[in-house]
């Protein structure tokens, strides 16, 4: 006999706060003891931290904002640096607004190319080796990301090429670079490349090349993984329609691979952003370098904690912004397509 069963609301299974406490923190004497001890240790640590924060000398940050931002750049150029920074911040703001109202991506790319050209023109009288601070950190990261992405895609596509020469060359490059630490690549480029390049490449440029060469190998592996995550049937369908291997890659495989690659790619770029701090060992005055330079001044000799707390906060804020932006991108791309 047919019978309709009405839908019921699910039962409420949330415990009361008191019941939760009892079950999770004070279940039995050992559990209660552990809870009390942990709470006491946390309280003691918090007390000391608050005490330090009240006594901390934030002047090392507040009085030197210019150095934190642009490093030891000659004072007559600082105004230009602020203009360029303002332009880029403006472009970032417009991008966020543009994404809200769903402007065509083409417009945004055009905007960025224009703004970057403008910023480059504003900064053109400044020698690259004179910039520092957050400005240099951002510059290293942006150039590193901007260059290693296309190079990595090329090498990654080469890694799955049917031509043995291209495949082997890509494989050698990837394995060679992944087999050495970033610091050694950085040192190698800052010491040995001058043998060939002479004075043609400044220290900052050599650091940029080192970051690109290093990160491209990892991007290539991510690209390979992304390509191989697209089912074989997609290539077969594309080839069966008469698309060439390159067309299939460009229109069918890479667009799908790209979405699978975003989390790993952003992770790689965040790690590149943080690795810019290693440039301090080849004598660049980026954020960490600025901190160390300030600590060398007598007045700030004892402000080590303040400087490193500030550095941690800056790196964290930017890394977190990148990872949350990528999560939004993933959600947006994930909608309605698969």
């Amino acid at each position: 006999m047919a019978m309709r069963v009405g839908a019921l609301a699910p039962p409420d299974q949330r415990p009361t706060p008191l019941a939760w406490l009892q079950a999770n923190l004070f279940a039995g004497p050992w559990n209660a003891l552990l809870t009390v001890l942990t709470a006491a240790a946390l309280a003691a640590a918090a007390l000391r931290l608050v005490g330090w924060m009240l006594r901390a000398h934030w002047a090392v940050v507040g009085d030197n904002l210019r150095f934190w931002l642009v490093g030891p750049m000659p004072v007559e150029f600082v105004g230009r640096a602020y203009w360029a920074g303002g332009l880029i911040a403006g472009a970032a703001l417009l991008t966020v607004l543009g994404l809200r109202v769903r402007v065509a991506p083409r417009v945004l790319i055009g905007l960025w190319l224009g703004i970057l050209a403008g910023a480059g023109w504003v900064m053109s009288p400044v020698r690259l080796d004179e910039v520092g601070g957050f400005y240099l950190t951002l510059l290293l990261a942006t150039v590193g990301i901007g260059a290693s992405f296309p190079v990595g895609v090329l090498v990654g596509v080469g890694r799955v090429s049917r031509l043995p020469v291209i495949r082997t060359a890509s494989l050698l490059y990837i394995e060679l670079i992944r087999g050495v630490p970033f610091i050694t690549v950085l040192l190698w480029f800052s010491v040995f490349v001058t043998l060939v390049s002479g004075d043609a490449l400044g220290r900052v440029q050599r650091a940029m090349i080192a970051m690109t060469v290093f990160t491209s190998a990892y991007v290539a592996e991510i690209v390979r993984g992304g390509i191989q995550s697209v089912p074989r049937g997609q290539t077969e369908a594309a080839r069966a329609l008469g698309l060439s291997g390159l067309q299939a890659m460009r229109h069918i495989i890479l667009p799908q691979a790209m979405r699978n690659m975003i989390p790993a790619l952003v992770g790689q770029f965040i790690s590149l952003f943080k690795d810019t701090s290693l440039a301090v060992i080849i004598g660049l005055t980026e954020l960490v370098g600025t901190g160390r330079a300030l600590l060398a001044i007598t007045a700030y000799l004892h402000d080590v904690r303040e400087v490193y707390v500030f550095l941690i906060v800056v790196y964290f804020v930017f890394s977190y912004a990148m990872s949350s932006a990528s999560r939004r991108l993933e959600r947006r791309l994930g909608l309605g397509e698969r």
């Binding site: 089912p231 049937g233 997609q234 077969e236 369908a237 594309a238 080839r239 069966a240 329609l241 008469g242 069918i252 667009p255 799908q256 979405r259 397509e337 698969r338």
Partner: peptide, 16 residues
């Protein structure tokens, strides 16, 4: 290939 069309068991439509 441009004279021969193919239909697959698993459709293989382009999901994007």
């Amino acid at each position: 290939r441009s004279e021969v069309g193919m239909v697959f068991q698993s459709f293989n439509l382009f999901p994007h």
